[in-house]
Write a protein that binds this DNA or RNA. Sequence first.
DNA 1: CATGAATGAGTTTTCATTCAT
DNA 2: GATGAATGAAAACTCATTCAT
Lengths: 213, 213, 213, 213
Amino acid sequence: MTLAKATLKERTFILMAARTHTASLSERPDKREAILAAALELFAERGFHGTAVPLVAEKAGVGAGTIYRYFESKEALVNALYQQWKGVMLQSILLDFPHEAPIRGQFHAFWRRMFGFAQEHPQAFAFLQLHHHAPYLDARSIALEEASHQPARALFEETRKQQITKDVPPDILIAIVFGAFIGVARAAQEHRFALDEATLDQAEACVWEAIRR
Amino acid sequence: MTLAKATLKERTFILMAARTHTASLSERPDKREAILAAALELFAERGFHGTAVPLVAEKAGVGAGTIYRYFESKEALVNALYQQWKGVMLQSILLDFPHEAPIRGQFHAFWRRMFGFAQEHPQAFAFLQLHHHAPYLDARSIALEEASHQPARALFEETRKQQITKDVPPDILIAIVFGAFIGVARAAQEHRFALDEATLDQAEACVWEAIRR
Amino acid sequence: MTLAKATLKERTFILMAARTHTASLSERPDKREAILAAALELFAERGFHGTAVPLVAEKAGVGAGTIYRYFESKEALVNALYQQWKGVMLQSILLDFPHEAPIRGQFHAFWRRMFGFAQEHPQAFAFLQLHHHAPYLDARSIALEEASHQPARALFEETRKQQITKDVPPDILIAIVFGAFIGVARAAQEHRFALDEATLDQAEACVWEAIRR
Amino acid sequence: MTLAKATLKERTFILMAARTHTASLSERPDKREAILAAALELFAERGFHGTAVPLVAEKAGVGAGTIYRYFESKEALVNALYQQWKGVMLQSILLDFPHEAPIRGQFHAFWRRMFGFAQEHPQAFAFLQLHHHAPYLDARSIALEEASHQPARALFEETRKQQITKDVPPDILIAIVFGAFIGVARAAQEHRFALDEATLDQAEACVWEAIRR
DNA sequence: CATGAATGAGTTTTCATTCAT
DNA sequence: GATGAATGAAAACTCATTCAT
């Protein structure tokens, strides 16, 4: 079984899961989107418990009661938000991923796509970081979170078999790569340095050195 | 000017700053410590806004009012906690640091000490991660946070001058190293793998490869 | 410059100041009025610190939280109340005051109007007495209080110039007249005697004797 | 029955009542006095409910618990204070009162003694004003308060019989005289004018005019 | 006796959620 | 559907009172 085939089913599952609650019913979508956008901004900045629902409503330009027409509760709202953006993130990375390319090229694609997401949606990136493992995430959010590890795990399993990466447990390599990614992305967002293409390539080269045999 | 001398003053400043509010008044320390311990556990798990003061009191085994005898407000409590543990972390890393050792040895010391702290005080580690850049941190907490970057920055600046590490902006190397550290420590705490000495050395070797020339 | 002209501006200022915060926003007024009425009764009886907010809410027939939709804080509530009733009192006395009448007639008008207010609004009268100079009164309340002295001061200054009243500092005459007024009004409210028109006229005659030359 | 005899019994009762709780047990009196002095100052300034017991303790230079060795509760403390100062005030006025002097002389004595008390003990004067009719005053305080009206009532009853004062209900004359007294004393304490002997005499003359036939 | 640290009931205030309009 | 005024449960915080020292 090849990697491409192995992850295809998973990918499909993940993307469908992410969609489910995002664009479902025939509610006018603009208000729903406005609420999600406002919540994203506020939850990313002040956290879930630190953000009052009427504040979300105000920023979304809707009445406070309206939020409850689109989401059952504040918890349902965070979870919808989490699932939405986790889904977007996964799509950004996995859609048309060059599974047939050489491993180094796949790594480059991975790296670029992750940064692409973090730079295009800095608030979503911060939100996902902050709400990682929060106790109010529901089963679906947690399942999505866990499922999102699979593709990387499969890729690194494969690279190790091919003796491209170091002879180190894949989970450690994953932790190093994702950790480094998050570190660089956060530092860039905190304006510690400009993250142009050249710098991004430098960082990528460093991280590749970390894991390659 | 050598690295050892350069950081000595800073170290001293940082450690003193960290101490100032931690072990100040001559109040009987057991209740204060119990409150701090309870707050650490709860804030790390549920966040600042997600934790009610009476819950902290109950876990500390004191009355709710008692917390306000030791801390002016809930905010003062988080800040005391932040400063305490940031201080402990800095001490764990910097106390008797082998500034005169070869760079690779210094890196090893750094890596080992950071993990030592994260493993000895997993809740404190989680707490510091979660409350990084929270809007309720006061000036002292923020100053301490910023000061805590200095030693690493000085070390990496120096290694680059000596052409030991890659010709890459030090901030990026720092982001990679700390990011990878956090990734590995978190993954280990989430029980994705055992973090014995051998594994730790493997991870360290990987990260060194990332930055060495 | 005549008295009428001298006090006209002041009167206008005072009445406008009193209005400003009293009938401002377009909130449905009934709840606001119910809260103010309940607060008046309770603050007059038990004082500011002696009255819990939920008690005001209960007496007003609203939820406790509702009070904070209309008033920023308990302090804001007392101040609104103080300004409202000080304003009403000033209006009762000054509106269409017969500035052109002979002095004795002006004194009669003053006396009658003050008693009119105290008898029509005994709780407001008690409230204003009790909260005179309280430390939680804000700048506007204090300004209104101080401004409210002006008309009487101007009147007594004038009477002294015309040698109608005794050659005694006006502030003392004012203190005697207002003190006697408060004494009589309070005694009447404590049911020490009926305050019919005849009795009121007797008291007025006594006080006029106190100040007239 | 002469006035002197009529009030003698009452006076005795009043003064004894006032003493009862003031200097009774063999407790060291200095702490008790310190507590009463501190409470007087704070209650006069901030009211009963606005003053925290530990604040009284701090100002008195004793431990918070100590207050409860001398007074059963905060309410007991206000009542002791009220009774103490009402007693002192009555003594100041009634002790060696020239009952045999001509009425005008008695009025002069009354006036001077009341002002003497208000000026010697401005905080006690303010305290008694503020706590007049407070719901936490106990039966003894209320009885003392009511008894304190008797001497004046008897005096004014008598003067009316002798046709010295106006043919007006004595309670109204009392209300005018006490009201004017409070008005002048308060105005003086608020520094609206200096209250030297000459001014005091002027005010007295005014008030006498108010009531004399 | 004197204390003051400790407490929990009570205070002011906030906020997720509802529901009449 | 949409609203936002209204709410009461729960939050942060205070304070009269107690009790071990």
